[in-house]
C-alpha cells in the first residue's frame, strides 16, 4: 500500500514539474564562409547542424548564416561574431539571449499565442528585447550599437539604465561609454515632405526681410507675390513625437 502511494506521488510530482529544456538552434543555410566554436577550435558550420548554448558563430566577408531558434529566424550578416548566451524553453515560454560581439544580425520573431517569448540581443553597450517583431541590430567599437525596427516594437536599454521603446522608422543608437542614446527619430529629421514655418516665411526669407525691409516686396512686380489673395487648403499632418 505504501509503495503504491509513493508511486502515485512520484508520478504526480513528475507531471507537475515542467523542466526547462535547451531549445533547438539549427543552421538553416549558409552563404560563403562561417565557423563555430563550442570548445576550443573553430570549425566550419554545416547546413542542418544543431548548435549548443555557449557556442560562438562567426562569418567571413561576403558571407551569412541563417539560424532557426524556436519561433525566431536569425540571420548573421557578414563579418559578425555571435555567441548563444542563453537558450531555454518550457511548454509556455522561451528565453533566448544572443551576444553580438561585432557585426550585424537580423532577427525575425514570430508571435505565437500562449507562448511567452523573451528574445534578447546583447552587445557590450546595450540590450534589445523583442516580442513578435523584426529588427536589425549592429555593433562595432566605433559606431556603437544601432537597433533598427522593421516590424513591431523593441525595448532597448543601455548599461546606464536608459531604456526606450523603439518602433518602426526609429533608430536606437548608443555609442560605447555614452550614457544616453541619440534621439530615436534623428534619422528621419531631414526626411520631411513639407515644412511649416511661422508667419509663412522661411528662415532665409525672414533674414532677407530683416536685412532689406519691405523694399524687396514692394518693388516686386510679379502680382503673384504682391497680391494678398488667400486660399484655403486641406492638409493632413502626421506628427510623430519621439
Amino acid at each position: 500500500m505504501k509503495i503504491q502511494k509513493l508511486v502515485v506521488i512520484a508520478i504526480a510530482s513528475m507531471m507537475c514539474w515542467i523542466p526547462a529544456l535547451r531549445a533547438d538552434v539549427r543552421v538553416l543555410d549558409i552563404q560563403g564562409t562561417a565557423a563555430f566554436k563550442d570548445q576550443s577550435q573553430w570549425k566550419p558550420v554545416k547546413k542542418g547542424q544543431a548548435l549548443k548554448e555557449g557556442t560562438k558563430i562567426s562569418t567571413g566577408a561576403h558571407s551569412s548564416v541563417r539560424l532557426k531558434i524556436d519561433n525566431a529566424t536569425v540571420t548573421i550578416r557578414q563579418l559578425s561574431m555571435v555567441r548563444i548566451n542563453r537558450n531555454l524553453a518550457t511548454g509556455s515560454a522561451t528565453s533566448t539571449n544572443l551576444g553580438l560581439r561585432y557585426g550585424k544580425i537580423n532577427a525575425r520573431i514570430d508571435r505565437i499565442k500562449k507562448l511567452r517569448t523573451d528574445f534578447r540581443i546583447s552587445t557590450p553597450v546595450a540590450t534589445s528585447s523583442v516580442r513578435g517583431t523584426e529588427e536589425e541590430v549592429s555593433f562595432g567599437p566605433g559606431r556603437g550599437m544601432i537597433v533598427q525596427v522593421l516590424h513591431g516594437e523593441v525595448g532597448a536599454s543601455n548599461r546606464f539604465g536608459t531604456s526606450n521603446i523603439v518602433r518602426r522608422g526609429m533608430k536606437f543608437h548608443v555609442k560605447q561609454g555614452s550614457p544616453r542614446p541619440s534621439p530615436l527619430l534623428l534619422s528621419t529629421w531631414n526626411k520631411f515632405i513639407t515644412r511649416v514655418d511661422p508667419d509663412d516665411l522661411t528662415d532665409d526669407e525672414k533674414q532677407m526681410l530683416e536685412r532689406f525691409g519691405d523694399d524687396v516686396w514692394l518693388n516686386f512686380e510679379d502680382p503673384q507675390f504682391t497680391s494678398n489673395s488667400r486660399a484655403k487648403a486641406k492638409v493632413n499632418l502626421q506628427i510623430i513625437f519621439p
Binding site: 566577408a61 561576403h62 557578414q78 563579418l79 561585432y102 557585426g103 550585424k104 562595432g140 567599437p141 566605433g142 559606431r143
Partner: peptide, 15 residues
Amino acid sequence: LSGGELIEIMNKTIE
C-alpha cells in the same frame, strides 16, 4: 585604428 574598428569599417566598405 583598432582591429575591431578595421572590421567595422571594412564591413561597411564591402556592403
